[in-house]
Each structure stands twice: as structure tokens, then as C-alpha cells.
Design a binder for these strands. Structure first.
Lengths: 228, 228
DNA sequence: ATAAATCTTAATATTTTCTTAATGTTAATA
DNA sequence: TATTAACATTAAGAAAATATTAAGATTTAT
């Protein structure tokens, strides 16, 4: 299991690494949020321990950024212990929270607790980022999409659109929003390539594209994948 | 989302139910571990909030039992706050831990944090913009409007008008005010498009549009959504 | 380099929504 | 109770948004 520890305080970084090494985890270190994002892009990280206060990019922002397309558990570290900070951290997408100074045993316990959800009994197999709603499921690790267990083959753009909508099932995205998130550039009108892709996706994941069960349109607002 | 709350203290049970109800979760109650296991067998439960100290079967044993074949996130509740208990709870398979007495906001935050991986993560905008009054509820994220749990489909303009009035339930808005806020331009008379939209909204959210329960008119002044 | 797959564009169709305008109804008040 | 101003109702045409299709451009794989 690979754990990324992100803190600008080198001493704490080293201390945590020692505790985790001792438990048999492979530990990567980052001094700030940007470094963390880089490492996450390169290595397969299973858990992140992240300080909130850091230069360059703080832990909360980094967590938000990570959560945009990865489902890696995050444990927040902070010197503050007030409720408001705790709540903010958890709402930003953190999975757990530890205040400094921390008890090494508690750190280990929380690490294990978070990793437990992603290991299957018996093996140390990592879990993949699976997004599902109803009979629709996409596995971000393998890029496999299934509908009621049946695999469907999506093209890259189709996959990105469906992932965005499924990862945030229930939320409505305007066409422009979709364009921006997927193409990473602002949409310029006239714009109907998204509509074309939506059609193609529907052809593949819906029984009847005209009466979509998953990929719905909200007139005048945009598209969403139904939260089922 | 269905949440099972398990505690032998009826007061705490009811208090938690109120907090969670208010956030739009469906709440099931159990007085001990055995009852909890029963309900889990019957209903689809997405999260469990469990007290550690209970008669019949305590929370730790129940959690272990649940973890034998289900992977439902568990948040532990306990009066004790010593580190050892905390660690034990987490090692037993709990995903999070709250000590009594607890801050309701923190409870909600931790619940959301655990459930996020079910609804699946994504953007930071997890704050659910939900406006409700009586049986009327609108969720700004999914653009879903429900009346007594029944979904109704509003058009964009209809939605905007109803959102304005519901978000400020009780306040009366003149027709011109509504026009300005929704169309973002001053109203020019003769103007009756707002009235037409009001009618359409009433058709959708009211049992009897002629005797509206939610969307009322205040003669000579304007419209409001009743604060219930 | 070529073929296959994928993406975008553009033209057109279809669906849904919005506004207008004509007319009806209600509530306050003199 | 007659008057009037404000709201209600309806239907139809205009406008806006999405859907669809096919062809051409681009990218990817072999």
C-alpha cells in the first residue's frame, strides 16, 4: 500500500514516514499541494495524509483538486482543533481528521481504518475508483463501463463526459460546464459537439435513447446522470 | 440515502433522527445490535451510526458482525473519549468516531463525509442547496423539485421563480421584483408573463391551483411562498 | 503510410418553453 | 353594488433548446 504524506514541516514528514514504514507501508513525501498532485499523477497512491496549512497550495485546495477525478482517501492533519476547521476539512472531501500533536497509535489506527474500505478481505488488493448509480457503473481504473453487468465500449471523450456526470450523479451540468471540464477550455458557440456525444453515449448505455433512464436532460439547464 | 441509527438511549436516537431528517436522509432506528442486524438484512442501509455501549449486543460486536459480509460505513458513538477506545473502535472496523456529547454540525459533516463515497465524489460543491417549506422542497444541485416527496418537473423560468420565492419563504415579492430578479432586466408593462408562469407553477405544485397552499398571492402587493 | 476509429461541424428536425394578447375573474372601495 | 385595478386563464405563435444525421477532418493504431 502506498501512502503519500504531505506536509511542509520536514520533521513531521519524517516522523510520520517512520511510523508508517514500520507498519509496512510504502511512503511518498511531498512538501506542498502541488508536489502532492504531481506524485499522485505518477504513482499509484492509496491514501493521502495531508497537512492543511502549507505553502504553494494548501491542503484543502489540494484535496478538492484531487477529488475532482480521483477517489483516494484523505486524512487531514492540522494544528488547529476547533470544530469549524474540522467540519470544513470533512466537507471539503477529507475522510478523516487528526490534530497535531497526534498520538502515533491513533494515526496508525486511522490509516488502517481508511485503507480497510479499499482492501478486499485476505488480499492487499487496491480498490479502484468505481462510480455507480443504478445499473450503470464505471471503473476508472480499467475504464470499463457496464450497464446491468453488460460491458459497453465508450470512446475517450464519451467516457470523460459520462464519468463527470456519474461521479457527480444527480447534479446537473450545463453544456458549457461539461465542455469546460472535459475539454479544459471554455466553450464557444455555436457548440453542439457535446450534444452529439451525449447522443452516442445514450445509444450505448440506454435501452431506448429517446427515453433515457440514466443520462437525462434537464431542459434549459443541462444534463445529468440520475442518482439511483 | 438511508441511515440506520443504533442507540439504546431513546432521547439520543430521536435527536439524531431529527438532525438527519432535516438533511433529507431517511432514518431507521434500532435500540441494540441485534435489531440493527435485522434492519440491515431487510433494508438497504447506506450508513450506520452506532453507539458502543448497548444491551443485547454491543456496538463493537455488531460492527464486526456487519463487516463480515457488508461494507456499510459505520460511525461509532460513545460517551468515552479516551484514546484507547477510539483506537479500538476504529480497529474494529468503524470508519469514524464521535464522542458524546456531540456537536450536531459535526455529526452531519461526518455523515456527509462518509456518504460522499457512495454518492461518489467529485467537486467541492457538496453543500446541498436545498430549500424547503412544508412539503415543498427544491434541490438546487439536481434541480429537482418535490411536493410531499413526489417529483415535479419545472421549466427553467418556473424553477427560477419558485426558487426565489422558496429561498425567501414568507417574503412577498411584487411582480416587477420577480421579473427583475429572474430576467435580470426591468419589467416593462404591459407585463403578464410572470402571472402565466405563476399559473403553470401552481398547476404543478398545488393540489388545487385555485386555492394554493404554497404559492400565494397577496393582493395588490405580489406573491410569496408560505413559510411552513 | 494506410486504414480504422474518433471527433467535429453543419444543416435540419424536433421538442419544449416562453411570450403575447385577448378575455375572464376577484377584491377593495367609494 | 358599481367601479376599477390587479390577478387569472387560455390558446396560439414565436423563440429557444435539444436531437439527429451525415459528411468531412482529425487522430490513432497497425
Amino acid at each position: 500500500m502506498n501512502i503519500l504524506v504531505c506536509d511542509d514541516d520536514k520533521e513531521i514528514l519524517d516522523a510520520i514516514k517512520i511510523y508508517l514504514d514500520n507498519e509496512g507501508y510504502k511512503v511518498f513525501k511531498a512538501a506542498n499541494g502541488l508536489e502532492a498532485l504531481e506524485i499522485i499523477g505518477e504513482k499509484e497512491i492509496h491514501l493521502i495524509i495531508m497537512d492543511i496549512m502549507m505553502p504553494k497550495m494548501d491542503g484543502l485546495r489540494a484535496t478538492m483538486k484531487i477529488r475532482e477525478d480521483k477517489n483516494i482517501p484523505v486524512i487531514m492533519l492540522s494544528a488547529k482543533s476547533e470544530d469549524t476547521d474540522k467540519i470544513m476539512g470533512l466537507n471539503m472531501g477529507a475522510d478523516d481528521y487528526i490534530t497535531k500533536p497526534f498520538n502515533p497509535l491513533e494515526l496508525i489506527a486511522r490509516v488502517k481504518s481508511q485503507l480497510r474500505r479499499y482492501t478486499t478481505l485476505g488480499s492487499l488488493e487496491t480498490r479502484s475508483n468505481v462510480f455507480k448509480t443504478g445499473g450503470l457503473m464505471l471503473d476508472d481504473e480499467s475504464k470499463i463501463v457496464t450497464v446491468d453487468g453488460e460491458a459497453v465500449k465508450l470512446t475517450p471523450v464519451q467516457y470523460k463526459i459520462l464519468k463527470l456526470l456519474t461521479a457527480n450523479a444527480g447534479r446537473v451540468y450545463s453544456i458549457d460546464e461539461i465542455y469546460e471540464k472535459v475539454w479544459k477550455e471554455p466553450a464557444v458557440s455555436p457548440e453542439n459537439t457535446v450534444a452529439v456525444h451525449i447522443r452516442k453515449i445514450r445509444e450505448k448505455i440506454e435501452i431506448n435513447p429517446k427515453e433515457p433512464k440514466y443520462l437525462k436532460v434537464v431542459w434549459g439547464i443541462g444534463y445529468k446522470v440520475e442518482k439511483l
